[in-house]
């Protein structure tokens, strides 16, 4: 009898990443593994290096030292062993950009950074598909409308420009645009930052549903512990470029060990 694998396969193996702009500015000696289907939260104050780390992980900025290894076929039948392990900064730029565009996704804090503001919502959602080589207008449009419904946007507004959308709707659009190619790994940088509380709550709810239904693996950077508690399975607490504590989300938030984590948890305002 085949036993189910208890340990989920490693999707992203981060080995000793250092990227410093100056002493204690940036991130230093970061080591962790992300398993398939896992949501990892990175929390910390402003300037703790969490965004730098995300940029390095997402392939936007080369690290000073260390490796980011992506195990492409984790959890599936390994058909092609040479392709199975990709060292993000050792592979060529063409391959890295193709990976970022097609298998990975990045959700920016400000939807204006992730969207093309000059073209319609439908064109935004379709862009990654067109980059993959889809050349059928009708199908692109159907997919666009399906995704708009999935992120709870009015599909009738497919031809409207993103600038006519509210902040929360723009963020939903950015998420649809990113997820349309069914990426396996998504990086999110403060996806609910700058939104008001009720909009945040609905967006988080939607994100949680999507993560579960699509089986996404997510690296989530946030300074908001409530967001982290709702979405993340596991947390990494950063301070001054270093990881001070890691563990399961509930464990970290309910029983913080490091004094900085204790400070962080006790600083949360409760109405």
């Amino acid at each position: 009898m085949k036993k189910p694998a208890l340990e989920r396969p490693v999707l992203l193996d981060v080995q000793d990443i250092t990227r410093l702009y100056g002493p204690a500015k940036g991130c230093e000696a970061i080591d962790f593994q992300l398993h398939a289907g896992e949501v990892l939260g990175i929390v910390g104050e402003s300037g703790s290096g969490k965004s730098t780390l995300l940029r390095v992980l997402a392939g936007l900025e080369a690290p000073d030292a260390g490796r980011v290894v992506y195990r492409r076929h984790a959890g599936e039948d390994v058909l092609d062993r040479d392709e199975a392990e990709l060292d993000l900064y050792a592979i060529g730029e063409a391959q890295r950009r193709a990976l970022l565009r097609l298998e990975w996704g990045l959700v920016h804090q400000n939807p204006r950074d992730g969207l093309r503001m000059g073209v319609s919502a439908g064109a935004n959602i379709g862009e990654r598909l067109m980059a993959q080589g889809q050349r059928h207008y009708g199908q692109l449009r159907e997919t666009g409308q399906a995704w708009m419904r999935q992120v709870e946007l009015d599909a009738g507004r497919i031809d409207d420009a993103p600038r006519t959308f509210s902040g929360g709707m723009q963020q939903r659009l950015q998420i649809a645009r990113t997820l349309v190619t069914r990426p396996r790994l998504v990086f999110m940088d403060e996806p609910t930052g700058g939104l008001d509380v009720s909009v945040q709550a609905r967006l988080l709810d939607m994100l949680r549903t999507l993560v579960r239904s699509l089986g996404l693996s997510v690296v989530l950077v946030t300074h908001d512990l409530a967001v982290a508690r709702l979405l993340a399975h596991r947390l990494m607490v950063m301070r001054r470029g270093q990881v001070v504590e890691t563990g399961l989300t509930d464990q970290i938030l309910d029983d913080p060990q490091h004094e900085y984590t204790q400070l962080l948890v006790s600083s949360v305002l409760t109405p």
């Binding site: 093309r116 073209v119 064109a123 862009e127 990654r128 050349r135 207008y137 031809d159």
Partner: peptide, 13 residues
């Protein structure tokens, strides 16, 4: 891929 974004936008509009 972005070249087709422009053409898509034309048809949509």
């Amino acid at each position: 891929g972005v070249m087709h974004v422009k053409l898509y936008e034309d048809i949509a509009r």
